[in-house]
Structure formats: C-alpha cells, structure tokens
C-alpha cells in the first residue's frame, strides 16, 4: 500500500482526474473532499462489506423458501 502524508487543505491526484483533499481533521476523524468524474463510483467500504455479508446470509437462506409461504399468511 502506498502511504502519503498530507496536511489539512492538501490534495492528492489519482490518474489525472480524481482529486482527494483533506478538508478537515478533528481528533481521529478526517474529512475528505473528493472530486471525480461522474462515472467513478465512490462508497464507504462498509457499504461493500455489508452487501457482501448480506449476500452470504441470503445464499445460506435459500433453503428457507418452503417456509416463506407460511410467513406471508401471518
């Protein structure tokens, strides 16, 4: 992993088109400003992990289909 040190208001540029700036630093929280083309998708990593986790749970529950009919009648 590439590690760079940056101070508040400093920026890095990725691939000539994605700009990430340090907007603010408070305690252990860093506020990032991101300028990128619309086609670049930006999400918190937790979102990916959460969807992965939910997919895994869904894959385990496909056997439960037989009980779904009953659930609906309640």
């Amino acid at each position: 992993m590439l590690i760079l040190s940056r101070r508040k208001d400093e920026t890095i540029i990725i691939d000539d088109k994605i700009e990430i700036s340090i907007v603010d630093i408070k305690g252990d929280q860093v506020k990032l400003g991101i300028n990128a083309p619309r086609s670049v998708k930006i999400y918190r990593k937790e979102v990916y992990l959460e969807i992965e986790k939910e997919n895994a749970a869904a894959a385990r529950s496909s056997d439960a289909l037989a009980s779904l009919g009953d659930l609906f009648k309640k």
């Binding site: 969807i51 939910e54 869904a58 529950s61 439960a64 659930l71």
Partner: peptide, 19 residues
C-alpha cells in the same frame, strides 16, 4: 432484490434494497 430469511422463533424476512 435479494431476500434473506433468518429463521427462528421470530423469523425475519428481509430484502436488500441497497444492493
């Protein structure tokens, strides 16, 4: 939407609308 069923005494049936 992908559905997850969590069986048990109070079965949960949820759908993933974020993904």
């Amino acid at each position: 939407a992908i559905v997850t069923v969590r069986p048990g005494e109070d079965p949960q049936m949820t759908a993933n609308l974020q993904g």
